[in-house]
Design a protein around this nucleic acid. Sequence first.
DNA 1: GCGCCCGGTTGACCGAGATCAAGGCGCGGC
DNA 2: GCCGCGCCTTGATCTCGGTCAACCGGGCGC
Lengths: 266, 266
Amino acid sequence: MLERRRTRLIAAADAPLRAAISDAAPVPRMPDDGDELRFCSTCAFGSVCVPHGVDKAALGELHCLVEHVGPYRSGQRIFHAGDRFGAIYAVRGGTVKTSLTDDEGREQVLGFHLPGEMIGLNAIHPAKYPCDAIALDTAYVCRFSFPALATLAMRFPGVQQQLFRLLSADIGKAALLAGDHSADERLAAFLVGLADRYAARGFSHTALRLSMARSDIANYLRLAAETVSRVLRRFQDQRLIAVEGRDVVLTDAAALRHLARNIVHG
Amino acid sequence: MLERRRTRLIAAADAPLRAAISDAAPVPRMPDDGDELRFCSTCAFGSVCVPHGVDKAALGELHCLVEHVGPYRSGQRIFHAGDRFGAIYAVRGGTVKTSLTDDEGREQVLGFHLPGEMIGLNAIHPAKYPCDAIALDTAYVCRFSFPALATLAMRFPGVQQQLFRLLSADIGKAALLAGDHSADERLAAFLVGLADRYAARGFSHTALRLSMARSDIANYLRLAAETVSRVLRRFQDQRLIAVEGRDVVLTDAAALRHLARNIVHG
DNA sequence: GCGCCCGGTTGACCGAGATCAAGGCGCGGC
DNA sequence: GCCGCGCCTTGATCTCGGTCAACCGGGCGC
């Protein structure tokens, strides 16, 4: 359903992703039991349940409270800025961008979210979503009612811990944007950060497909789209990467990492 | 007890602050009972206990687990980047900056923290402090053992909620740095943000004393110190502010707010 | 007192990246 | 097929803010 054939070169870097999606598609709401492994393999709460081996009971209850929603088509909103906060979401398949639009109508991209990553954590405090969440391709998400989750966390220390960790991790994420770094550093950090996040989910460490437009990347990195184009071109000339449309291969990841060395996270 | 008398102009804008400090000074460790109101008036956890009226019992337990530490002299570190994470801190008096130093030895200021604000929340996930916390003047802090706090949160929903809110709030804080805003916008947002935070703590809405050096402000806003100087001078020429050393009066807060309108938070 | 040092200010110049403008290319619709 | 519209790229020019340099003034040690 998603883009049919992926070209050679990167080949099907997102094949496992599509597999996950096709798995998810026929499961519109309640997860069936005996599905734990698959459920946890991509989910941000997987680490509550599987790796730590504790709170097996919590897993069952999470299953009951999670709601699978989607598909969202490219461009569709999962939630709107200003909506009353009621749930946090985990991306299950596809890519989601979060952004906000200021008075003058200028968009400000806050982040891109891959399968397994949480969105909506920054809505707890203001009690309403402070940004839009928009699907960049066909996307599926898991909805966790926050009151229910908080109640669950009261009973399972592992769940509470994981929530604290997820929240804490997000605080540091803005570091990429925060520092005053050159366009080269930003782009290098963006690419290796994305590659690392894909790699952590079982995809290739060096080949990736950008699901967002150049203008979104530029906006996210606080650069002009033209600058993104030029830097990518230069990286290619320097044999750091191979670019073909939205497919990128990191041919010299070490050099990219060196460029990005002063930017924590991705 | 906060701000006794508010002085003319800026004069000693931090006089009430100092008063708070001298109150705190003779209380080196365990808070004495019957101290609730004072404890809560500046503390970030005040809102757990007092305003919501619930979890009165939690207040007592918080009292037992909090540890008053200080004074720290200007320049002293409260915690170091890399230290194992064990506690979060609330500023009780004075001002604290958080910053990290990259491989090349360049400092990167992450934020300034006034009395009542929490620091160390971003250390939960990595399980070690990702930055230094340095006193900018004579500073006092409250130390909350995080394991103890998490345990307390398991029993008191209000405490858990407040922790979630504090963490969530911090996620959005980087917005000032994040956007690509002009030097004017950044400085205006910084000034009104600081004024609002002081105001929320009972200080003047329009007069404030900058406890940090120009170079720290510049670093925090990702500008050169010279640029901060020049913009402040221009703001003064435009009658937006009156500057005298580290004392600033916002003479046209409306105009400053308008300049900063596209920057959320401060 | 004197000199030093640090923080702050001001001016002159420079450069990274934004902006403006033009053109190419791929894809969906007709 | 052909057209039209986004997305992307490339080139020319402009500009905001950084960098370098000089100077000022206050606090502190001697």
